[in-house]
Amino acid sequence: MLDRYGRPETRRRYSKGEFVDLWETATRRTMTRAERETLARGCVGVTMLRLGLSECAPPTNLAFGDPGTHRAIATAEAVLALGEVANVRVRNFRACVAEATEEDLRARLEHGLEQARATARDIWTGIPKERIKRMRDARFAAKLEGDRRTFARVSEYVLGLSDILATEPSDARCFLRSVAADPDLSLLRGLDRNLPAGCPRDWETVIFAKRFWSGQEHIRDEDGNFVRNAAGLRRTRSSETPDATGFVPDPMTGQVDMSGDFLRGKPGHTNFDYGFYDLRSDSWWHANHREFDNAQPMYVYQSSAERFFTGRPDFDRSVMCIGFVNRSVDRDDLDPAAGGSGVGWVRR
């Protein structure tokens, strides 16, 4: 990305209203109420809007990671996670103490704050400072390199899929037969799921990313049975430590089984983060959080790859996914001067 003077730029920030204006200018229509509500969901809403979704979360049947950097991230996270969770607990207690007006409640919170501080102190003093720095640096570098490699791999898959779509298959079955005949694409699992309706000649691929926490599990009782909620669904929870054996990329294809993702975040941290890749501007679009109120405004970000790939310590897993969109469904064929479909209408 370049700024107005042609200099490299790593991030631009837009208010929700500014993003809506950009979107409406590019699509030459008014954003519907349902689309505004989708956008208000934050990072996931921005990606859902690009995929033409309003209810279901972005599909992760075609999710990929980097086998080569997986171990380095898991090793660093095993050292740092407990301390980072403890730090958040201290900050939360401190905020509650500052807001407490009742004397008894304030006293209880101050006691909890001291206990939280003691726990955090014990965790961090047990790790040499040099090792903490080394693990933070290693995690940062591994996340950046892992996302670079994953993006390169996924881009190759997308190129192969786009070549097949360019032949204008007559229907989904014809498209899938061509996929099955490709030596690389035929190795991918679940490619037949979540395909859009309509003719494949109207389809296009979208690359999007998801960051999340690996420490997720089903809750079981003393006998090992699943604990269920009132609706009969299995209850889940997050742990303070990562799961090094979860969401491991396939060594050959890089594909990741996301069936164990229950949307549970690292305790005290953000549950997940989404963003999608815009080919025209070679940038990633994401958001800070969902819409709350004027005190916590939602912002949409346009970031360079380097800025987006570094992520945050909230997450120890990052996957890049392939989605399909039917351009003919509630989308207009914009001419090149207008920027084309998607959100590549801003300056590059």
Rank of each mutant, 00 (worst) to 15 (best):
G83T: 03
A40M: 01
V329Y: 01
L165P: 01
N225Q: 10
T125L: 14
R139Y: 01
P336V: 09
Q255L: 05
F151W: 06
K129A: 15
R89W: 05
G265E: 04
F208L: 03
A305F: 15
L191A: 03
A86D: 07
D243M: 06
S328Q: 11
V319C: 02
P58E: 09
A141E: 10
H218V: 06
E145P: 00
T236N: 09
V88N: 05
E222H: 08
D330G: 01
D316P: 01
A40V: 02
N225F: 02
M31R: 04
Y277P: 03
R220Y: 06
R36K: 10
G52S: 07
W124C: 00
D223N: 15
Y299E: 05
L2F: 08
E37T: 15
A142D: 01
L144V: 06
R290E: 15
R131I: 05
P183W: 02
I73C: 00
S238Y: 02
V248R: 07
I123P: 05
L185Q: 03
N92K: 08
L233E: 12
I322K: 12
G254Y: 04
L233F: 06
S178E: 13
P183H: 11
G6D: 12
T69E: 15
K210E: 02
P249N: 08
R149P: 00
A72H: 03
F247W: 01
S54I: 08
A295N: 10
A305Q: 12
D192M: 00
A107G: 00
F309D: 02
T60N: 07
G45A: 08
S155A: 14
L191H: 11
A98S: 03
G112S: 09
S15F: 00
L233R: 14
T150Y: 01
G224V: 08
T38H: 02
R106E: 11
C174T: 12
D243Q: 09
R201K: 12
H289F: 06
C56R: 15
Y301F: 15
R264I: 02
A287F: 14
R4W: 10
A107E: 14
F175G: 03
M298S: 02
L53K: 11
L161G: 07
S239M: 14
S15V: 00
R7P: 00
R108L: 12
I164Y: 04
R91Y: 00
W203K: 05
V256A: 03
C321F: 01
D316R: 07
D66Q: 09
C43N: 09
A180F: 04
A138C: 13
E222N: 08
T119E: 15
T32R: 13
L263H: 11
